[in-house]
């Protein structure tokens, strides 16, 4: 049974209306006066997979956290199509570079997320089994989550996010510390989630990964959004000198 079918009866029925597009206007983030994000504005539409590219220290992860609401901008604002704050938050998920898993079983990690999303207890086992099957983690259902390998832990973090059926999934370099096989598995899951309607916004500094997954690219450098273009345009005809240098591996931090 697919995830959509499993949830058709009720679990997410109150969360059907969309929260996209998201608009970021004049975002600045300057803790202690140090301007780490400078006047970033963009719009996020449902559909394309957006890759946020840039060198280390460009502010990619900070921008992701500002969009997801984990950080408050020093100035500027992020607005979502839905005025319902609770719904807006529940319809987003984030997967971090280093997965943070609770000290309980694989299934219980997902169960906890579903509980926070007010999914009825009776509905949770079906959803848990479904995402575990689809992420290849079914055999680890009762295993303590922190005993999984790095790749499996990241898959569990994705499964946990997937179970909550987010409209927007933010990913902060989810494959940065994974081997090629695990990276491939994570990318497959991300692609499947996108195919099923989840908007993907992913931070990466891996140009090849951005080429494999990206429909749109946002290029950041020194806290500024220098380019926001389709992946084809960005990789073939970057507009800024910094982006061109980055693609050639010549950009200094």
């Amino acid at each position: 049974m697919g995830l959509v079918a499993a949830n058709q009866t009720s679990p997410h029925s109150t969360l059907k209306s969309g929260i996209l597009p998201m608009k970021a206007r004049g975002l600045c983030y300057a803790p202690d006066g140090d301007e780490l994000i400078r006047d970033v504005s963009f719009e996020l539409q449902a559909g394309p997979k957006t890759m946020i590219l840039g060198p280390n220290g460009a502010g990619k992860s900070l921008l992701l956290r500002l969009c997801h609401g984990l950080l408050k901008p020093s100035s500027g604002h992020v607005t979502w199509a839905s005025a319902n704050t609770s719904q807006t938050q529940k319809r987003q998920a984030m997967v971090f570079q280093r997965p943070v898993l609770l000290r309980r079983s694989v299934a219980d990690n997902i169960d906890y997320a579903l509980k926070l999303h007010d999914i009825a207890k009776a509905d949770r086992p079906v959803i848990i089994d479904d995402v575990l099957n689809r992420t290849g983690l079914a055999r680890f259902k009762v295993t303590p989550a922190r005993r999984l390998s790095g790749g499996e832990q990241q898959k569990l973090a994705l499964a946990r996010a997937w179970a909550c059926r987010p409209e927007v999934l933010f990913l902060d370099e989810p494959t940065a510390s994974l081997d090629p096989a695990a990276t491939h598995a994570v990318e497959d899951i991300v692609q499947t989630m996108h195919d099923e309607g989840t908007c993907i916004v992913m931070v990466t500094h891996d140009i090849n990964q951005a080429k494999r997954l990206g429909d749109d690219v946002m290029f950041m450098h020194k806290g500024q959004l220098l380019e926001h273009a389709s992946a084809e345009n960005f990789f073939n005809k970057p507009e800024s000198g910094e982006a061109a240098a980055f693609l050639k591996g010549e950009l200094r931090w």
């Binding site: 609401g69 984990l70 971090f96 609770l102 997320a113």
Partner: peptide, 9 residues
């Protein structure tokens, strides 16, 4: 846990 918990709501 803080960021993950906040992210989960």
């Amino acid at each position: 846990y803080a960021e993950q918990m906040k992210s989960l709501g």
